[in-house]
């Protein structure tokens, strides 16, 4: 068997042998030519080495062009953010549904504890009124209000009792309006 030259340059014979070997390993040669080439392989070490080299070269070339350049690979790379986005939306949706269920659950628990709400709301209202009033005298009044609101039945359709403080407040407001009217009367008219 002859041996192939290993210098960086390539002889015409090496080039021819490599090209034949590449066509052979690519399955491009017709059957008759493939068989003829195998007869050469039986006696020519250089041809065997060319087949080994081109076989390895073809495998590596395939890897090189497939991994980097394939549109399928590129498509999958671009598809990745879209998949992430879909997953994010699914996560957001799931969280919203879970929160919805939690909210409904809490609401149902609140309905069960409804009797306490009247007292709580009464306390809040009393606090607001106390803040609005801003003096001790009216703070004492708010205790009465708290008492009234606590005992107030929402389902009672009978004629509502108007609390005394409301009547007093309305009376005071009317009195202030009357005083204001008097105070802002034109001077000329007074003179008249």
């Amino acid at each position: 068997m002859n041996n192939q030259h290993n210098s960086p340059s390539m002889s015409a014979l090496d080039d021819e042998l490599n090209w034949f070997a590449f066509q052979y390993v690519s399955g491009e040669l017709p059957e008759a030519q493939s068989e003829a080439f195998e007869e050469v392989l039986a006696d020519d070490l250089a041809a065997c080495e060319a087949v080994a080299a081109m076989s390895e070269m073809a495998l590596q070339l395939n890897d090189a062009v497939t991994v980097e350049q394939s549109p399928v690979t590129r498509q999958s790379e671009f598809a990745r953010p879209a998949q992430t986005s879909i997953r994010s939306w699914i996560a957001v949706g799931s969280t919203m549904i879970a929160l919805g269920w939690l909210f409904m659950l809490l609401n149902s628990q609140d309905t069960n504890t409804q009797p306490n709400i009247g007292a709580t709301q009464a306390e809040d209202a009393a606090g607001l009124i106390a803040g609005w009033a801003g003096n001790d005298q009216e703070e004492a009044l708010t205790d009465e209000i708290l008492f009234d609101l606590e005992t107030f039945d929402l389902n009672d359709e009978s004629t509502p009792d108007i609390p005394g403080w409301m009547i007093v407040a309305v009376s005071l407001e009317n009195a202030e309006e009357a005083m204001g009217d008097i105070m802002h009367e034109p001077v000329e008219m007074k003179e008249n």
Partner: peptide
């Protein structure tokens, strides 16, 4: 080298 050669022959 033999493995590469055999792969080229046998595919």
């Amino acid at each position: 080298e033999l493995r590469a050669f055999l792969r080229g022959v046998l595919r």
